[in-house]
């Protein structure tokens, strides 16, 4: 693709070596290791591995707790994605009108991106706390009605809201960038044809956002599988009764608290396949099918 190049020499090899070495040690090797563990049974206190075939997978897949974890992960992924993207899209479309104070609005919506997931979890734990936060109001009216540590649906609602709160900024940035890349001549032509702002939003801007929309859909779902750890760990700790035991959290708990490396590895492999499938869908279909510009 490039005509003028340097000839390959030891310099190129030396420049490539560090990154390749690091991804080999910390990426490819552990992934292979996970695959190995998933098909063997490892003794946590040493003593070698024995080949067990698909036993670890059948054990994981026949575990009702695992399916509970999958269920809540899917609920969490869909709910946070819908809430975050809906809110981000609405805000982006109105910020894009560039009225007075446009910059202030933009900063005001972007900054949550910088907040660490465990900090979000901790802040929301206070907000949703039955004894001290605003929800203590509800409990003065109906004592004992709101308690995250007792009612699973409340805990799930809490992590969904916290997760969505954290995700809004990211989608907002992308929606706004996409809206601003719509040529002004297009907007003006639509206005000349008599399309008022609301009509333009529905019939012009939204269709033009489709590629961004699908891109964000996949990214948000993938992120909710992988980024949720910090929020769950500080907000609910996986409880009550494992109601918020998201997949990444369960891998961590099984692997590092239960010392069940093989089970955790089997779960990792399943999650890896899931994330890879989503990324594949992203590249193969979304990028190709939806294309307007």
């Amino acid at each position: 693709m490039r005509r003028a190049c340097f000839k390959f020499s030891w310099i190129a090899a030396a420049l490539l070596a560090p990154q390749l070495l690091i991804i080999f040690i910390f990426f490819y090797w552990p992934s292979a290791q996970a695959l190995y563990w998933a098909f063997t049974l490892e003794q946590p206190w040493g003593g070698g591995n024995t080949w067990v075939g698909f036993d670890n997978f059948t054990k994981v897949l026949s575990d009702p707790y695992y399916w509970g974890s999958v269920r809540v992960s899917v609920i969490y992924a869909l709910a946070t994605t819908v809430i975050a993207m809906g809110m981000a899209l609405t805000l982006a479309i109105f910020v894009d009108r560039q009225l007075a104070g446009y910059r202030a609005y933009r900063v005001g919506i972007i900054w949550p991106y910088a907040v660490a997931a465990p900090a979000v979890g901790l802040a929301f734990q206070f907000v949703f706390n039955p004894g001290a936060g605003i929800f203590s109001y509800i409990n003065t009216i109906a004592p004992g009605w709101w308690d995250l540590s007792k009612y699973p649906w409340q805990a799930v609602t809490a992590i969904v809201i916290a997760g969505a709160w954290k995700q809004v900024a990211y989608s907002f940035i992308f929606f706004l960038a996409a809206l601003q890349s719509i040529p002004r001549s297009l907007t003006e032509a639509a206005a000349m044809d008599g399309a008022r702002p609301l009509r333009r939003m529905v019939d012009m801007q939204l269709p033009l956002l489709t590629p961004t929309f699908f891109f964000l859909l996949v990214i948000n779902i993938t992120d909710s599988f992988t980024d949720s750890f910090g929020i769950v760990d500080t907000l609910t700790g996986g409880g009550p009764f494992r109601a918020t035991d998201l997949m990444v959290y369960k891998i961590y708990a099984d692997g590092f608290r239960g010392f069940d490396y093989s089970g955790a590895a089997a779960q990792s492999i399943i999650l890896m396949l899931l994330v890879m499938a989503l990324t594949f869908v992203q590249f193969r279909y979304v990028e190709r099918r939806v294309h307007y510009t």
């Binding site: 992934s31 290791q33 992988t226 990444v248 692997g255 990792s268 890896m272 990324t279």
Partner: peptide, 28 residues
């Protein structure tokens, strides 16, 4: 800026690491 065989292979080897964030392969 260098021409050598396997250039695309190395690019993809690095690019694939995007797919599996640290959280997913945390135990190994």
């Amino acid at each position: 800026f260098f021409t050598f065989r396997g250039r695309m292979l190395i690019f993809w080897a690095i690019f694939i690491t995007l797919m599996l964030p640290l959280e997913v392969r945390i135990v190994p």
